[in-house]
Design a protein around this nucleic acid. Sequence first.
DNA 1: GCAAATTTGTCCGTATGTATC
DNA 2: AGATACATACGGACAAATTTG
Lengths: 250, 250
Amino acid sequence: MAVGQRAVRGREPEPRTVRQPLRQEVVDGIKAYILRNDLRPGDPLPTEPALCEALGASRSSVREAIRILTALDIVEVRHGHGTYVGRLSLSALVESLTFRGLLSPDDDFQVMSDLIEVRELFERGMAERLVSCLEEEQIDRLAAHVDEMRRAGAGEGHGFVEADRAFHTLLLAPLGNDLIGQLSTAFWDVYVIVAPHLDVFTRAHEAATIANHQRIVDAVRDRDPAEFAAALTEHYAPVRLRIEEARSRR
Amino acid sequence: MAVGQRAVRGREPEPRTVRQPLRQEVVDGIKAYILRNDLRPGDPLPTEPALCEALGASRSSVREAIRILTALDIVEVRHGHGTYVGRLSLSALVESLTFRGLLSPDDDFQVMSDLIEVRELFERGMAERLVSCLEEEQIDRLAAHVDEMRRAGAGEGHGFVEADRAFHTLLLAPLGNDLIGQLSTAFWDVYVIVAPHLDVFTRAHEAATIANHQRIVDAVRDRDPAEFAAALTEHYAPVRLRIEEARSRR
DNA sequence: GCAAATTTGTCCGTATGTATC
DNA sequence: AGATACATACGGACAAATTTG
């Protein structure tokens, strides 16, 4: 009963107009609500029943819409607590690219190869700006991460990859371009997740990896963009090589 | 056929283990089904009732899981027809970045500025390779797009933006790195959607835009990477300027 | 062109798990 | 510890879209 709560649908005179699903209207409605009230990540959203009434949809439609927005990190849900504006991260990109890498359409390793190439492009393409932008204090922190990798290299690998991730994050931080940093981090995440599934040995040549990181730090300290770019090439070459090795093993 | 029998819930002995929502298990189950059967975009998936039985979940949970996978373009649904493997595009990135650009936390225009910078980095960073890789036939097609922009420039703007998009897509195509091309396209989409909302006049200086595209084509034809890079700088400078203008208007 | 079958879309009612006060 | 507010999950029913005979 009470089927016609919502504004009557289907009064669209245009035959060309394909009517979109109700949940999509709810998605747009929630987006509009956030924009209209100028909410920020972490701000609370109305409860599910409130959204149902406000948008004229059932709980099912509202919940499906929330699932879509959650996948995009536009909305974040805490069970038993409430619904909030999400962090607007690039988590969806990670999910999407990770699955693409695992499914591997034609060439199993093209995705990985492309990924590394873009990361190298970010750092090499910004070489001049990075070398001039990085301040002494940040360079010290980069060096600290290299030390951290040396310490963690002996033990198990968790600290090693964390330090590696932090190193590259910090390296791109002074650009003032959040997008580049977030993309680079996202690609790093995808690589770390997918590589083991493709028998790419991420922890091979750890010593060489550490040495190359050190070389990058030294180049920055010397404010030498050419040496910086060369160090980056040295750093990424073995990664590319490992992907090629794994590719040829199949 | 069987997607995989779910283990009975609720007998988890570990109190520390935070049990993930059932729909997430369904998400993972559907992903695993695609990977296990090595499906490709467009391949059919089991019907909703079949997934319910295979994964031991109700239809609501299965549908919410499908919504999540749809948002990531891992799954595609056709009403009244069936569920299929999605195209694995970067549509989620477009959605995510678009909303971030519209919400605009601190600086309304930082997202747009970052976006353009990355696109320029892609094309400038690949200047040498592009200049040497592009074949005569592809250069002719680039020139054709410039002509198309000239024709469409007089009329309404739809053909213009399409030709612009096609130009940059084709420009990055010969790299053999699909990720770069798709990212560039995604950023282009975000820019076109967000710019009008921020009063950035995308169609301003159309003549200059066409002239710069022509200059890029000429540089490629002459196999002149330095001129190519210079032309790109010329091309992106006014875009950056328009963003700055819009920023200062607020 | 119509009608039936199949499949997804939407709704409702209810019960359960979870976090906060 | 109890109460309350909220999200999670289930099952059944009907509507809408698509294909097929």
